[in-house]
């Protein structure tokens, strides 16, 4: 049943993302409504998975994989709450980003290997804190990056003096820019704490530097430059979006290497 719920959640997230994207591409408003429903179903299916594992005494961050999936679930939940609070259609554009993100996070859960009941890796408190912070921080930065991608796509259309469905139905450029900035503002300190706790954790384990750590530091540096340049030199818009993409690419590479290595710590 848990496997079925997991498959249902991934499928429903994928369908929600595809429908939102199709709506942005010009499909009728019904597509956006269907996307909301699909995202809601996926969220509930994943809630079932988390709940079932909880009953089996598996903590949501018992492994890196679990933590990534849990972060995706939190982001999808935040999006659904935002939809309920503000029923404006432009928010559906965010669904085209959030739903695939949550789906990818869930798939990563399987690739990275979710902890089996009774066989959770013994990360200790510090390890769990690090994994939780890293998953949340990378999740928020991923969201910022996704918003930045939408910004670049809209910017490209407006620069070409074409007003396609994306511009008509999407969120205004300045709003996207501000949204991405806020997400980085929140995600960056979380990511910083994740790096610090990760360094402390590695030190406690007595392990040396790993290849993903410099990559994570590069990502941290790029996001730091982004925030600094925005404050001091007014970097925003397209330039900020490209820097966000660069920073996230580095962070994603770090996470990817960690996941592919498949170690418990």
């Amino acid at each position: 049943m848990e496997s079925f719920a997991l498959i249902a959640a991934v499928s429903a997230y994928a369908v929600a993302g595809a429908l939102s994207a199709a709506w942005l591409g010009g499909l009728a408003a019904g597509a956006a409504r269907a996307a909301r429903v699909a995202c809601g179903i996926a969220f509930l299916a994943q809630l079932y998975v988390i709940g079932a594992r909880g009953v089996a005494h598996v903590h949501p961050v018992s492994s890196v994989g679990d933590a990534i999936g849990f972060a995706g679930w939190l982001i999808a939940g935040a999006y659904l709450i935002a939809l309920v609070v503000r029923r404006a259609h432009p928010l559906d554009a965010v669904g085209a980003v959030v739903a695939p993100l949550a789906a990818v996070a869930l798939v990563t859960t399987r690739i990275a290997g979710a902890a089996a009941p009774g066989r959770e890796a013994d990360f200790g408190l510090l390890g769990r804190v690090h994994i939780s912070l890293a998953a949340l921080g990378v999740g928020l930065l991923a969201l910022a990056t996704a918003v930045a991608v939408v910004y670049l796509a809209e910017d490209r259309q407006l620069k070409r003096r074409r007003v396609g469905h994306l511009v008509r139905r999407g969120i205004a450029l300045e709003t996207l820019d501000a949204l991405a900035h806020r997400l980085v503002l929140v995600g960056f300190p979380v990511f910083t704490l994740a790096l610090l706790s990760g360094a402390a954790w590695l030190h406690r384990l007595g392990q040396g530097m790993r290849v993903e750590y410099p990559l994570a530091l590069i990502a941290w540096g790029l996001f730091g430059v982004l925030l600094l340049a925005r404050t001091t030199a007014g970097w925003r818009g397209r330039r900020a979006a490209l820097l966000t993409l660069g920073g996230f690419a580095s962070a994603a590479l770090a996470v990817g290497l960690y996941v592919m290595r498949g170690t418990g710590a």
Partner: peptide
């Protein structure tokens, strides 16, 4: 009734797409 139907309204609509 969606979308501007004249040049002046189109300018307003585009301004909204940029600035919200």
């Amino acid at each position: 009734a969606r979308g501007a139907a004249n040049v002046a309204s189109a300018a307003v609509e585009l301004a909204r797409r940029i600035f919200g």
